[in-house]
Design a protein around this nucleic acid. Sequence first.
DNA 1: CCTTAATTTAGAATTATTCTAAACTGCTTG
DNA 2: CAAGCAGTTTAGAATAATTCTAAATTAAGG
Lengths: 140, 140
Amino acid sequence: MRQKKSALASVTVLERLRAAGLRPTRQRLALAKLLFARGHRHVSAEQLFNEARGQRVDVSLATVYNALHDFTGKGLLREISIDSSSSYFDTNTGNHHHFYFERTGRLEDIASDQVSISALPSAPGGAEISRVDVIIRVKA
Amino acid sequence: MRQKKSALASVTVLERLRAAGLRPTRQRLALAKLLFARGHRHVSAEQLFNEARGQRVDVSLATVYNALHDFTGKGLLREISIDSSSSYFDTNTGNHHHFYFERTGRLEDIASDQVSISALPSAPGGAEISRVDVIIRVKA
DNA sequence: CCTTAATTTAGAATTATTCTAAACTGCTTG
DNA sequence: CAAGCAGTTTAGAATAATTCTAAATTAAGG
Ligand SMILES: [Mn+2]
Ligand SMILES: [Mn+2]
Ligand SMILES: [Zn+2]
Ligand SMILES: [Zn+2]
């Protein structure tokens, strides 16, 4: 059962990479599995790199950065910059917002229907809005 | 008239620093004047440093960083991290939000009454909210 | 004036991220 | 299956924003 599930997850991840037009290399498959195997996550490059290492996945830090950016470019991840010290990659690419715990640096999702923003001013000069981020900073 | 205005601005800035408990040094006065003399601004450390240089204000980059952080610590500025490449300091410390122009990296204020956020979920565990940021990213 | 604590500064250090150029590998073709 | 090649990985160097260090300067108070 456990083996089967893992195998299925691999297949899914492989298909996901192919569908995005990304070659399913050993490194990308391993990283994608770490990222997408369970529920949504918010990780930094360094975190993912350490996690991979911990599971004996032989991958370089440069490749982690490459993969995160490639995944982001194909819409599999969303990049979030909150603290200028490093950026996070979010596996939840749908419309949603965040709690940001200042002490720990952790991010937590807020479903978009939990926050209703009304009267959004339109962008000056009719420019196109690419994204609206709501970040609730929490002292904890 | 012009001289008077400049002199008045200096006095105001000096009082502001004193009121915040910051010694009004030559460097802080010059930087504060650049920051607060006219309307609200969003500047990076590097920008402010270059601006000071351009006006023959002899100040080091380390001092610009020190001043920006000291001012922020005393509530004269607010620090904003949007793009992980560098952070901005906002002279508008009141409640408001931002347009972020992705191409140019410029920030523009949105008065807080232009955006109404309803149904803000309370922070988990009753933690205190320190700030809510709404950033509208614009492709332009 | 003197004294002292706060501030400034040059330059080194730190750190996240990107770049470079060479080695490697997944996929297509013959 | 055997190239061939573009795409990918990688070690290590490079970059760039920011912070740190330790010594010199200066504002404030008596
Ligand atoms: Mn990035
Ligand atoms: Mn800072
Ligand atoms: Zn999220
Ligand atoms: Zn602002």
